[in-house]
Design a protein around this nucleic acid. Structure first.
Length: 151
DNA sequence: GCCAACGTTGGC
DNA sequence: GCCAACGTTGGC
């Protein structure tokens, strides 16, 4: 089982929304690296750190898990969608998404606190210029964060 | 609002 | 294939 960090802007969709909805289809990813993680590497049951970005207090706010394998993102075919991709066709879909479901809300593990942990210094999230909305989390990082969230 | 960093586009 | 221009991300 792998582990992931997934970013969402809470003004668009926050962890409480995920708890309310029971699951979310992670549509709208239009970056090839993030797509490839979903398509090639994400499996049902993989752990997910739910991260709030572009907000007052960026950081990890909850735990979730992958609940459905990657499948075509239908918004790519919809000319009225902001995620429309004229080069994608149902015969040759370009974009996929997984679903995730909530495990539990956690305390805020804020970005500055993450930065202050030497154990997390190599996190993909912290790497210079990283903008990926989906990044892998190493097992040691995952376990450290889970322990840290309890303190 | 600023701006660094990065990805994508498209002309050549 | 190169690369300038442009758009987006996301912390501050």
């Amino acid at each position: 089982m792998r582990h992931w960090l997934m970013k969402s802007e809470p003004s668009d969709y926050c962890f409480d929304d995920l708890v309310r909805d029971g699951y979310i289809s992670w549509i709208g990813v239009r970056n090839y690296q993030a797509r490839n993680f979903m398509r090639d590497d994400m499996r049902v049951g993989d752990g997910v750190l739910f991260y709030h970005s572009s907000c007052d207090e960026p950081g990890i706010v909850g735990l979730a898990e992958v609940s459905r394998l990657a499948h075509p993102d239908i918004t790519q075919f919809d000319p009225s969608s902001p995620y429309y991709d004229p080069k994608a066709t149902p015969e040759a879909p370009r974009w996929v998404h997984v679903d995730i479901r909530p495990i539990r809300k956690t305390r805020l593990l804020a970005l500055p606190e993450i930065r202050d942990c030497p154990e997390l210094a190599n996190m993909r999230l912290l790497q210079r210029g990283n903008r990926l909305s989906i990044t892998p989390v190493e097992p040691e990082e995952w376990h450290f964060i889970l322990k840290r969230l309890e303190s």
